[in-house]
Amino acid sequence: MNKIILNKGKDKAAWQLHPWLFSGAIASISAPTPNGDIVSVYNQDQEFIAYGMYNANSRVAVRLLEWDPRKEINEQWWRERLQKAVNHRRHLLHDENNTLRLVFAEADFLPGLIADKYADFISIQVHAAGIEKIKPILVDELNKLLQPKGIYERSDLKSREHEGLADTNGLLSGEMPPSFVDIIENGIHYQVNIVEGQKSGFYCDQRDNRHITAKYVKGKRVLDCFCYSGGFTLNAFRAGAASVTSVDSSALAIETLKSNVAANGFDAEKHHAVQSDVNKYLRELGEQGEVFDLIVLDPPKYAPSRSTLEKASRAYKDLNRRGLLLLKSGGLLATFSCSGAMDIDTYKQVIAWAALDAGKEIQFIYQYGQPEDHPVRASFPEGEYLKGLLVRVL
C-alpha cells in the first residue's frame, strides 16, 4: 500500500474524521498510484491518520474510509460497510413503503456510492474510481442482502469526469427493469422509470416532506411546481385537496404524473397538468390574477458550489417572490432548496427578501429536512443538502 504524507497543518480535518483530502493537502506520495487504489495517510510526524481511496485526477485526491490502523480495507470490509448501511434502514420497508435510499455515500462511509431501492429493483450510481474498482463486490452483496429482481446502474454523472471515469449505464445483475416500475411510498403508487428518469429514477428524499405538507391541503387549491412524477401532487390528492395544478418542463414527467394520478384512482377532473417553464408559468398566473391556498416550489439545484451561491440566491429569491404573489392571506408556501452550498439561515434570509419584494408579511411555521435514509454524518456536514421552509402569508 502506498503512503501519503500530508503538508504541515493540513491534517486537522482528517483527524476530525472528515472524509475528504484535497490535492493541495498532500506533501508526497511514496510511489505512483493508480486511481482508485487504497493508500495510507500520515501527517508530517509519520503518525497514521487513515486509509482512503486515491485519485490523482480529482480535486478530492483521497476519500478517507477507515481510521483504525488495525483494520484492512479488503473485500470483507466493503461487505460489512454495505451490510451496516442496509440494515440501518430495513425498518423503513413495509407495506406502505417499498422505496428508499440504501446507501448515501459519505454518510455511510461508502464515499462515491449511491444505491436506491425501488420495489424489487435497485438503482446505483458510482461517483468514485475506488468504488468502480470494487463494484462487483458491492453488487454481489446487495444481491445477498435484498435479493432484488435486478440491479441497474445510472452513472451518467458530471462528477465522474473529475474522477477520470466515463459515463456508464446498464444492467449489472438480474432482470432488466421494465419501462416503469410500480413503487409504493406513503401508501401511494408511482410509476418510476429507472432507466431514463431523472437521477436514479425518483426523489425519495422528499418522502417525509410530502407527507407533512399534505396535512395542510384538505379542501385547498394547490399548485405543485417542478412536480416531476407528482410526489407532492399525489400526497395532496390523498389528503383531500380540492384541486391540484402540477407544473414541470419535462414532457416525460408530465406523462408519468398523469399515469400516477390514474393509477391511484384520483379524480383527473380535479387535476391540471402543465408542461412549462415554471418561472414563465408563474408570471402568467400572476397576470391572470390567479391565487392558491398552498404552493410547492421544489426546484433543481441552483447552487452546485459556493462560487455560484450569490447568483443562485437571486434565482431563489425571484422564484419565491413569484410564488408568494399568488398566495392570499393565510396561504402557505412549501419552498425547498437541494443546494448543499445553501445553508438554512441563508435560505431564510433569501425567502425574507422575496417576501419583502412581494409586499408580503410572512411567518416561518415549519423547517423541512432530509429523511433518515439520507442521514448527515457529524464529521461531514456537507451531506446536509436538502432544506425547506413552510411559510404562511399573513
Rank of each mutant, 00 (worst) to 15 (best):
residue 13 A to D: 12
residue 14 A to K: 05
residue 15 W to M: 02
residue 15 W to T: 01
residue 20 W to N: 14
residue 22 F to Y: 15
residue 25 A to D: 07
residue 26 I to L: 11
residue 28 S to Q: 11
residue 35 N to G: 12
residue 35 N to M: 05
residue 38 I to A: 02
residue 41 V to L: 15
residue 41 V to T: 13
residue 42 Y to E: 02
residue 48 F to S: 13
residue 50 A to K: 05
residue 51 Y to W: 11
residue 54 Y to L: 15
residue 54 Y to V: 14
residue 58 S to L: 11
residue 64 L to V: 09
residue 66 E to W: 09
residue 71 K to Y: 03
residue 71 K to V: 12
residue 76 Q to Y: 08
residue 79 R to S: 07
residue 79 R to C: 02
residue 80 E to F: 00
residue 81 R to P: 00
residue 83 Q to E: 13
residue 84 K to C: 07
residue 87 N to A: 02
residue 96 E to P: 00
residue 103 V to E: 05
residue 104 F to A: 14
residue 105 A to S: 15
residue 106 E to V: 01
residue 108 D to E: 10
residue 112 G to H: 04
residue 115 A to K: 13
residue 115 A to L: 10
residue 117 K to A: 08
residue 118 Y to R: 08
residue 118 Y to N: 13
residue 123 S to C: 12
residue 124 I to G: 05
residue 132 E to C: 00
residue 134 I to W: 03
residue 138 L to K: 12
residue 140 D to K: 14
residue 142 L to F: 14
residue 152 Y to K: 13
residue 154 R to H: 06
residue 159 S to G: 05
residue 161 E to D: 14
residue 162 H to D: 10
residue 166 A to C: 06
residue 166 A to E: 14
residue 167 D to F: 00
residue 169 N to G: 00
residue 170 G to H: 04
residue 170 G to Y: 01
residue 185 E to L: 07
residue 187 G to V: 00
residue 193 N to I: 08
residue 199 K to M: 07
residue 203 Y to W: 03
residue 213 T to H: 01
residue 215 K to G: 07
residue 221 R to Y: 06
residue 222 V to D: 06
residue 223 L to H: 10
residue 223 L to I: 12
residue 232 F to E: 06
residue 234 L to M: 15
residue 236 A to N: 10
residue 241 A to G: 04
residue 246 S to G: 12
residue 253 A to W: 01
residue 253 A to V: 05
residue 255 E to K: 15
residue 256 T to N: 13
residue 258 K to E: 04
residue 259 S to I: 09
residue 259 S to W: 08
residue 259 S to Q: 15
residue 279 N to T: 07
residue 282 L to E: 02
residue 284 E to Y: 06
residue 285 L to P: 00
residue 292 F to T: 04
residue 296 V to I: 15
residue 301 K to C: 12
residue 303 A to H: 06
residue 316 Y to N: 08
residue 316 Y to I: 08
residue 318 D to L: 03
residue 319 L to I: 12
residue 320 N to Y: 10
residue 324 L to N: 02
residue 342 M to P: 01
residue 345 D to G: 00
residue 354 A to N: 04
residue 355 A to N: 09
residue 361 E to C: 03
residue 366 Y to G: 07
residue 371 P to H: 07
residue 373 D to E: 05
residue 388 G to N: 08
residue 390 L to P: 05
